[in-house]
Amino acid sequence: MKRTHLPLNGLRVLDAAARYLSFTRAADELAVTPAAVGQQIRTLEDVLGVVLFRRTAKGLELTPEGAAGLEPLRRGFLEFEEAVRAMQAQQSSKRLTIAAPRDLTAKWLARRLADYGRSDPELGFAMVAADDSLDFTQANLDVAICLAEEKGEHEGVMIGPREHVTIGRADGPDRVIGWPGCPMKEGDPAITVADAGLAIDAAAAGLGHATVPALLADGDLASGRVIELARRPCSRAYWLIAPVPQWRQKKVKALVAALGG
């Protein structure tokens, strides 16, 4: 069924003017001029095809047509207010749905979410694997992390440097460990794995050396599982992104701050 277009501004003015029976007092409440109130009422009368107020010797008077709609109108405004409160109540939810590459989750994100989660027992996380066809609406996502040159069409902050690091073991063989997206193009790699996280693990196992985003290797370098063999700038970095409505959520702002954005 096609819905009738509702002149909500005019109806709000009608409600205020009917309560005070004064355009001046209604204007004070609505923070507009009395002339603006009068114009809204005249426009509403034109739209509805009825007279809403009459001026009498005693002052402003509501017509029977105007009075007939006031009770359902005010019920409707209360319903609107409840709807707004219900939507705003979701801001109090501290559960976040995050899409991120699997290797980033394993090597970097999971540890930081664990640290952040200890700061507030109400925090909760739903993790999903990111892919190239990221759809915030369909996946009901709050934020996503992607490896890209720029943040793209969404709001976002860069996390980690635009750097690749080559890692391996001091006693490891001089063999290249490849993975999809690997920046090393030195012919066919001796070993191929599914992602950069597995490339780090393969290097730690002594299978060769791997060149991966520096952010992913930080934990393994710090623990001594691998050593740094070389470091170079690159065009891509990890970006924490979200559409504007999600980005404005308090819980997303807090997550961005916690992850160092």
Score class of each variant (00 low, 15 high):
Glu150Leu: 13
Ala242Cys: 02
Leu221Ser: 05
Ala199Pro: 10
Pro180Phe: 02
Ile200Asn: 01
Gly178Met: 01
Leu229Val: 08
Ala86His: 13
Phe77Leu: 07
Phe80Gln: 14
Gly168Lys: 06
His5Arg: 11
Lys58Phe: 07
Ala27Ser: 09
Pro34Met: 14
Ala114Tyr: 09
Asp142Cys: 03
Leu6Lys: 05
Pro161Val: 01
Gly219Leu: 10
Gly260Cys: 00
Leu134Pro: 07
Met127Gln: 09
Ala222Trp: 06
Thr192Ser: 14
Leu11Phe: 13
Leu70Trp: 02
Gln90Asp: 11
Lys107Tyr: 07
Ala67Val: 03
Asn140Val: 12
Asp120Thr: 08
Ile191Ala: 03
Thr24Met: 09
Asp174Gly: 06
Gln40His: 13
Leu198Gly: 03
Leu70Glu: 04
Gly10Lys: 02
Pro121Leu: 05
Asp103Val: 02
Asp220Ile: 03
Val226Met: 10
Gly49Lys: 06
Glu65Tyr: 11
Leu52Pro: 03
Ala36Gln: 08
Asp135His: 13
Ala196Glu: 04
Asn9Val: 13
Ala26Phe: 02
Arg118Pro: 04
Asn140Ala: 14
Gly76Leu: 15
Leu113Asp: 02
Ala110Leu: 11
Ser133Glu: 15
Ala18Trp: 07
Gly10Tyr: 04
Pro183Tyr: 05
Ile200Met: 06
Glu149Ile: 06
Thr97Pro: 03
Gly224Cys: 13
Leu11Arg: 05
Ala26Met: 07
His154Glu: 04
Asp120Ala: 06
Ala18Thr: 12
Trp239Gln: 00
Val165Ile: 12
Ala31Arg: 14
Leu14Glu: 00
Lys253Val: 03
Leu259Ala: 00
Met127Thr: 07
Gly172Ile: 02
Gln91Thr: 02
Glu45Gln: 14
Glu82Ser: 14
Met1Ala: 11
Asp28Val: 11
Val212Met: 03
Val32Phe: 09
Gly197Lys: 02
Asp132Ser: 15
Pro233Arg: 09
Pro64Met: 05
Thr4Tyr: 10
Ser235Ala: 12
Arg112Asp: 11
Asp131Ala: 06
His5Asn: 12
Gly261Cys: 12
Leu109Gln: 00
Ala86Glu: 15
Thr4Pro: 05
Ser235Cys: 01
Lys2Trp: 08
Leu8Val: 15
Gly197Phe: 03
Ala214His: 06
Ala26Thr: 00
Thr56Ala: 12
Leu215Phe: 07
Pro183His: 08
Arg232Ser: 15
Ser133Asn: 15
Gln91Trp: 10
Gly76Val: 09
Ala31Asp: 15
Thr137Ser: 13
Ser119Gly: 13
Glu82Gln: 13
Pro72Trp: 14
Glu45Cys: 03
Arg236Gln: 15
Leu48Gln: 06
Leu229Ser: 09
Asp120Tyr: 08
Gly156Asn: 11
Arg85Phe: 06
Gly117Ile: 03
Ala17Val: 01
Ala230Trp: 12
Pro34Lys: 09
Glu155Val: 05
Ala126Asn: 04
Lys2Arg: 14
Ala148Gln: 10
His164Ala: 01
Ala67His: 08
Val252Glu: 07
Arg54Asn: 14
Pro245His: 06
Leu62Ser: 02
Trp247Phe: 10
Ala35Glu: 05
Leu229Glu: 09
Gln246Ile: 10
Gly208Tyr: 01
Gly76His: 08
Arg75His: 07
Leu11Cys: 10
Pro64Cys: 11
Gly187Tyr: 02
Val212His: 00
Pro64Gly: 12
Leu207Asp: 03
Ala99Glu: 05
Thr211Ile: 01
Ala217Thr: 03
